[in-house]
Simulated assay, not measured.
Amino acid sequence: MTPDESRNILLIIIQAYPQFAKQASKELYALWADKLKKGDFKRTKHLLDKHIEASSYPPAIADILVIADDRFEKTRQMISSWNISVESTRKPSLDELPWSDEMKAAFKQRQQQKTYHVPNNEEFKKKAF
Rank of each mutant, 00 (worst) to 15 (best):
S88V: 04
S88N: 05
S88Y: 04
S88L: 02
T89F: 14
T89W: 13
T89V: 15
R90S: 15
R90G: 15
K91M: 14
K91A: 11
P92F: 09
P92N: 10
P92W: 06
S93T: 14
L94W: 07
D95M: 10
E96L: 03
E96D: 11
E96R: 00
E96F: 01
E96K: 02
L97D: 12
L97F: 00
L97H: 04
P98I: 10
P98L: 01
P98A: 02
W99G: 06
W99N: 10
S100Q: 13
S100F: 09
S100Y: 11
D101I: 01
D101W: 05
E102M: 11
E102V: 08
E102L: 07
E102W: 02
E102K: 07
M103N: 12
M103Y: 05
M103A: 15
M103T: 11
K104D: 03
K104Y: 11
A105P: 00
A105L: 10
A106K: 06
A106G: 09
F107L: 12
F107T: 12
K108N: 06
K108V: 00
K108D: 06
K108F: 03
Q109P: 07
Q109T: 14
Q109L: 08
Q109G: 10
R110P: 03
R110E: 13
R110N: 09
Q111D: 04
Q111M: 09
Q111I: 02
Q111L: 09
Q112Y: 11
Q112M: 14
Q112T: 11
Q112H: 15
Q112N: 14
Q113K: 02
Q113Y: 01
Q113H: 01
K114S: 12
K114I: 07
T115S: 12
T115H: 10
T115Y: 05
T115F: 11
Y116M: 03
Y116F: 14
H117C: 00
H117P: 00
V118Y: 06
P119Y: 08
P119R: 00
P119A: 03
